[in-house]
Computed example of a mutant assay.
Amino acid sequence: MDTDPFAAQREIAAALDVAEHFDIETEWRCRVAFLAEELQRAGRKSLVLGISGGVDSLTAGRLCQLVVAGLRTQGYDARFVAMRLPYGEQRDAHDAEAAIAFIEPDQILRVDIQPAVDATLQSMIDAGASFGDAHAADLIAGNVRARQRMIVQYAAANALHGLVIGTDHAAEAVMGFFTKHGDGACDLAPLTGLTKRRVRALAEHLGAPFNLVQKIPTADLELLRPLHPDEMALGVRYDAIDDFLEGRPVGREVAERIVSVYRNTEHKRAGPRTPPSRRVSWED
């Protein structure tokens, strides 16, 4: 790591496409246009997104509904499908239902992922796999839950001629705070480049309920630590991450933490590594 963690601040913000200036009217219209164009370009008919009850899926979901409503006025047959994907009983299910009530999706699909997740983990145990101590096993199971949710979303998108929408944004991307091939997988990522505070501002601008906009973020993937706040897992507050990405002053310890995690999680933001090119020129 560089001796000066601030030297990488602008470089990282640029790599994650964080705009220096934020105009909310421009942002939401640009992202709606992006989704509309990509759906039509792909020749698909639906946008599919899992709704967790957090502000990220709330915001992405509302953008999706605005997109399909607008396309239908132009004669393009499109719909937004919201998916509820609990693992058994979701502790904050009321927030997810409130989010869906605000978004008003065209269709709601509810799939309990617990049977599939439990069967997968048990099959691995039966095969002789070892998950380590209880904490390690809980983390592994959490990632299986995240990936199972994406399996279901892609199955739905296949059946409904749709594209899967992701909720990743710059504040999560910089910290690698997503499951590789789980919530990090998608066809379209409309929140890319936004910090957490900008996601919240966008949600508020779109009319989302205040309690959902300001809800304490939690991935809620660990059974041993239910509803564990993201900021405790990250070891740094979202406000500090946002300040770093938006080019504002932050403490050295915060900057060092963010830069270190960013570099250590590069593999999560990149595609598969491949061998060096061995192509031979046709002229040789």
Rank of each mutant, 00 (worst) to 15 (best):
A137M: 05
L206I: 07
D92L: 04
R147I: 08
Q153F: 06
I103R: 09
A201V: 01
L121G: 05
A116P: 00
L206V: 08
Q122N: 13
A101K: 11
A156Q: 13
A101M: 06
R91Q: 12
A156C: 14
P209L: 05
V174M: 09
G128I: 02
T195N: 09
A173N: 11
L191Y: 06
S123I: 00
G142Y: 07
A203D: 02
P209G: 04
R91T: 12
P105N: 04
E204F: 09
E89G: 07
L109V: 15
A170M: 05
G193W: 05
I108G: 07
E89Y: 13
A98P: 08
Q90L: 05
R91F: 02
D112C: 01
P190C: 00
H161L: 04
D183F: 09
A96G: 15
R198T: 03
G182Y: 05
H181W: 13
I165E: 06
R149Q: 04
G142P: 03
R198S: 03
I165W: 08
V144N: 02
A185I: 03
A203K: 10
R147F: 07
G142C: 09
A127V: 01
E204Q: 13
D92Q: 04
I103A: 03
D133R: 04
T179D: 07
I165R: 06
A93S: 07
G193Y: 03
T192S: 14
L139I: 13
I100Q: 10
R197L: 12
Q90E: 14
V111D: 08
L202M: 13
V199A: 09
T120Q: 11
H94W: 12
R110S: 15
Y154A: 06
A116I: 12
L188R: 11
I165D: 04
T192F: 10
T195G: 13
N158P: 02
R145Y: 02
D95I: 01
Y154F: 14
T167W: 02
L212K: 03
R145K: 15
D138A: 10
Q107H: 13
A101Y: 06
P190N: 00
D118V: 10
R91P: 00
H205I: 02
G184Y: 06
A141C: 04
A157S: 11
V152W: 08
Q107P: 00
A201K: 12
G207A: 05
G207P: 07
A137G: 15
G207D: 06
L160F: 09
R147W: 07
A98S: 11
G162I: 03
H205R: 15
G193E: 02
D126R: 14
L160S: 02
A129S: 14
I125L: 15
E172C: 04
P105E: 03
N211C: 11
E89S: 13
R197E: 13
V164M: 10
F178V: 05
I108T: 13
M175A: 07
L206M: 14
G207F: 09
D106C: 00
L191S: 02
L163Q: 03
V174E: 03
A170C: 04
Q90G: 04
M124I: 12
C186A: 15
M175I: 02
F131Q: 03
V152D: 07
Q90I: 00
D92R: 00
A98H: 10
A99P: 10
L191W: 05
S123A: 15
A116Q: 13
L188K: 01
A137E: 13
F210A: 14
P209I: 01
R147Y: 06
D133W: 03
T167Q: 10
A127G: 09
A93L: 14
L188P: 06
A101G: 03
